[in-house]
Amino acid sequence: MLTTESASQFDNLEKMSVHELLTNINNEDKTVPYAVEKVIPQIEALIEQIVKRMQQGGRLFYIGAGTSGRLGVVDASECPPTYGVSPDVVIGIIAGGDKAIRKSVENAEDDENQAWIDLQAYKINSLDSLIGIAASGRTPYVIGGVKTCREKGILTGCITCNKGSKLAAAAEYPVEVVVGPEFVTGSTRMKSGTAQKLVLNMISTSVMIRLGKVRGNKMVDMQLSNEKLVHRGVRMVMDELQIDEKQAEALLQQHGSVRKAVDSQKQ
């Protein structure tokens, strides 16, 4: 029995009050960061290898199915606005294609060969890195993609929530975050999904910091794509240069990014 499929520690959920449900779900969720803490060395080893390749122009790919695939797509899609990188630097691929982001695509995760076909559309190569995401660690789409990439000299990692899975065996740098049974038995969008999201946050954030996309603690390369972000950018420029709001607005408008606005006054 997989840990992710084992019976919940709670029963008769339908008899619980809303308060009891929320309290028990929250108490279960509190255990997730501690499970992640235990595997920080695994995450660190994977990140160090990803950074080496991305410093040479490599890209980072995520593959997954269902919730795991969606989490990868979300993390990848947030890198361009947050760090100003091109959309082809961090790429999330979900089994069944983009339509599977909103609706389940029947049997999409069962084809071991499809992930490699999907990755070839991006001309994946040995400078790139691949992370396979699967709570169960047994999703054929993900295992097949990781196996093939590793055979072809591409760096492979994975995020799974079971120990000793086929996916972990296939990956060069496995990350196994064992969060225990779900509150609703087998509902891996809960604790397992939370763990995967936390690890993805750690990976993409650490990688972008190491690539120089953060200065101090600020997202100096973020895209100024809405009013909130423009205001944030203005505050960053004000703080960094110790100037007033009007001067900061003018510099930001002139240069188009926080980094360029600040650097223009420090040359």
Rank of each mutant, 00 (worst) to 15 (best):
Y122N: 09
V90W: 06
R70M: 09
G66Y: 12
I117V: 15
K38P: 06
V74M: 15
E44T: 15
V89G: 03
G97I: 03
K52Q: 13
D110L: 08
D111N: 15
A65M: 09
I94R: 06
I124K: 05
G57W: 05
R53C: 08
E48M: 12
E48T: 14
L71Y: 05
W116F: 15
I40A: 04
S86V: 05
K99R: 12
P33W: 10
I50N: 08
N107P: 00
N125W: 00
G72A: 07
G57L: 11
K38T: 14
Y83S: 05
Q56W: 04
D75R: 00
L71Q: 07
D110A: 04
V73H: 04
I117T: 14
K99A: 12
L60V: 10
D98Q: 11
S104M: 06
Q49G: 05
A76D: 08
S68D: 04
P33T: 12
S86A: 13
E106C: 02
V39G: 01
K38Q: 14
G84H: 02
D111A: 02
V105A: 10
T82N: 02
R59F: 08
R59H: 11
V32G: 09
D118C: 07
I47F: 03
G97C: 05
I47A: 09
D98F: 09
V85D: 00
T67N: 06
D118G: 07
G57T: 06
C79V: 09
R53P: 12
G58K: 10
E37H: 11
A65V: 13
G64W: 06
I93T: 02
Y122L: 07
D111Y: 08
Q55F: 07
D110K: 02
E106R: 01
G92M: 01
I117Q: 14
T82F: 02
R59N: 10
E112T: 15
P41T: 12
I101A: 01
G72I: 10
Q56E: 14
E78K: 02
A121K: 15
I50G: 10
E109T: 04
S68T: 04
E37N: 10
L46Q: 04
I50H: 11
T31P: 02
A95K: 00
A100P: 02
M54D: 10
A100Y: 00
V85H: 02
I63P: 05
Y122W: 15
D111F: 07
D75L: 04
S77A: 15
L60W: 13
D118H: 05
V74E: 13
G72F: 06
S77M: 07
G57M: 07
V39I: 14
N107D: 15
E106M: 07
S86I: 03
G84S: 00
V85S: 01
K123F: 08
L46K: 03
V105T: 09
D110C: 02
